[in-house]
């Protein structure tokens, strides 16, 4: 596990809120994401996890508050430069592939960036997720697990500084879960890629995360090192969550 405690934070959120139609769905007083860490985000459905990831990917601005990322500081009205937004990407629960070949899907992000010679990276990403044999196949013919592995490979070829994973292994069989977890672990260890992982799977959080955050109704309850979170949580609600007593 990396010792990242002393570094400048990768993200620092201050009083970030998000409101939809007058309803506040996110209210984060403060959150730091450390460079090179895997931070798991757990919490019931509807608690605002995906919304938080959309803000961190700069797909939507916060309603109020500040998001510091790398050298920038972004609020409700600061447009985030394209080059900054391109340092982050998301793998969603449902792999949304383009109606093209597997290879073209993985190449996609490089095309957006006008990169001409990324073919080697595409092949390496395909090999990493164990799909080299399916490169020429139309993406829509893949199984759910294969499609999610393509989505992960598509995210890794653009070599983001931050990878956001929104329940990436929900509904997948153990083999595919294993490939995806191995890939995330490798990216984090070997390339120092920071990752934020939304998961309902407590075991997955234990396997992958350095720290874990619990979110309830849009607010962070506790953010702690993985061992503290699971073995000696401070907040009784975290304890209830860890014991599996939280009904949702």
């Amino acid at each position: 596990m990396n010792n990242t405690a002393s570094s400048v934070p990768c993200y620092a959120l201050e009083a970030v809120t998000k409101t939809y139609g007058g309803r506040r769905v996110l209210d984060i007083a403060g959150l730091e994401v450390r460079p090179g860490e895997v931070l798991a985000l757990v919490g019931p459905s509807g608690s605002g996890k995906s919304t938080l990831l959309r803000l961190l990917n700069f797909l939507e601005p916060p309603t109020s508050g500040r998001i510091r990322f790398m050298d920038g500081d972004y609020g409700p009205d600061q447009p985030v430069p394209l080059a900054v937004r391109r340092r982050v990407t998301t793998v969603a629960q449902r792999p949304i592939l383009l109606n093209r070949s597997v290879w073209a899907n993985i190449r996609f992000g490089l095309g957006l960036r006008g990169e001409r010679d990324g073919d080697g990276r595409v092949d390496a990403a395909l090999a990493q997720v164990g799909l080299a044999a399916l490169a020429r196949q139309p993406a829509r013919t893949l199984s759910g697990g294969e499609a999610q592995r393509v989505a992960l490979a598509r995210a890794m070829v653009i070599e983001p500084d931050v990878l956001l994973l929104d329940e990436p292994t929900a509904n997948l069989d153990p083999y595919n879960v294993g490939v995806i977890e191995d890939t995330v672990r490798t990216l984090n260890r070997d390339r120092g890629m920071t990752a934020m992982l939304v998961t309902h799977n407590v075991f997955q959080a234990r396997r992958l995360a350095h720290r874990v955050a619990l979110i309830l109704e849009g607010r962070l309850v506790e953010v702690a090192d993985v061992h503290v979170f699971f073995e000696a949580p401070r907040d009784p609600r975290t304890a209830a969550f860890v014991r599996g007593e939280m009904v949702y």
Binding site: L82, T89, G109, R113, I158
Partner: peptide
């Protein structure tokens, strides 16, 4: 959702 995914990829 494809639009958001594509944006997320840059």
């Amino acid at each position: 959702q494809l639009r958001q995914q594509v944006q997320s990829l840059g």
